[in-house]
Simulated scan of single mutants.
Amino acid sequence: MQEITSVQNPIIKEVYSLHQKKRRNELGLFLIEGYKGVSEALSSKLQIKDIFISSDFNKPLTGFPEDKIYRVNEQILKKISTTESPPEIIATAYQLKFSIEDLFKTNNPLILLLENIKDPGNLGTIIRTAKASDVSGIILTDETVDIYNPKTVRSSAANLWKIPIIYMSTKSQIKDKLNKLKSNNFVATVVAENKKPISYYEVDYKKPTILMFGSEAEGLSEELVNQADELITIPMNKQVESLNLSVSVGVVLYETVRQRRFKQ
Rank of each mutant, 00 (worst) to 15 (best):
E193P: 02
S199G: 12
I100M: 00
I117C: 06
V240Y: 15
D204S: 10
K206C: 09
F52V: 07
A228S: 13
F52P: 05
S215I: 13
I147C: 04
I32V: 00
V145N: 01
K196F: 14
K263Q: 15
P10A: 07
I89W: 02
E40F: 11
D102G: 11
L245M: 05
L27V: 00
F30S: 08
E255H: 08
V72S: 00
E115G: 15
K78Y: 12
V145L: 03
Q264F: 14
R260W: 05
N226C: 06
I32R: 04
I90H: 09
G250N: 00
S85F: 09
T62A: 08
I4G: 12
H19W: 02
T5M: 05
P65I: 02
V203Y: 05
I89A: 01
S221R: 06
E218K: 05
K180E: 12
K21I: 11
Q95Y: 01
N116S: 10
W161P: 12
K206N: 10
N179T: 14
V15L: 06
Q47V: 14
L46N: 07
L29S: 03
Q227W: 11
P208E: 11
L231Q: 00
D204V: 07
E66F: 07
N185C: 11
N237Q: 05
T144N: 00
Q2G: 00
P65T: 05
K105T: 06
L243F: 03
L231R: 06
V251S: 00
K49E: 04
P87I: 00
S99D: 08
T83D: 10
M168G: 12
Q8D: 15
R154L: 07
R154A: 07
N9K: 01
S39K: 15
L253R: 10
Y148W: 01
E3G: 12
L220T: 12
T125W: 04
A130C: 04
K97P: 06
G214M: 04
A228G: 10
E26Y: 02
D50Y: 04
Q239E: 14
F104P: 09
Y70L: 04
S99F: 14
S133Y: 15
Q20E: 14
I127K: 07
G34I: 01
F262H: 09
G28H: 07
S155E: 01
T106I: 15
I166L: 01
P86N: 01
I139N: 03
P87Y: 05
Y70P: 03
L61Y: 02
N58Y: 02
K79L: 04
V7K: 08
S55L: 12
T170R: 14
N108H: 13
I166P: 03
I174C: 14
L31T: 05
L231C: 08
L181A: 09
L245F: 00
K68V: 08
D146V: 09
S242N: 06
L31V: 07
G219Q: 10
T125N: 10
K196P: 08
Q95M: 03
F52G: 04
T256P: 13
F98I: 06
A188E: 11
Q227L: 14
W161Q: 15
F262N: 13
S6G: 00
K131I: 09
L140A: 01
R71E: 05
S99E: 11
V251G: 03
I12W: 09
N149D: 09
Y167E: 10
N184W: 13
N73M: 06
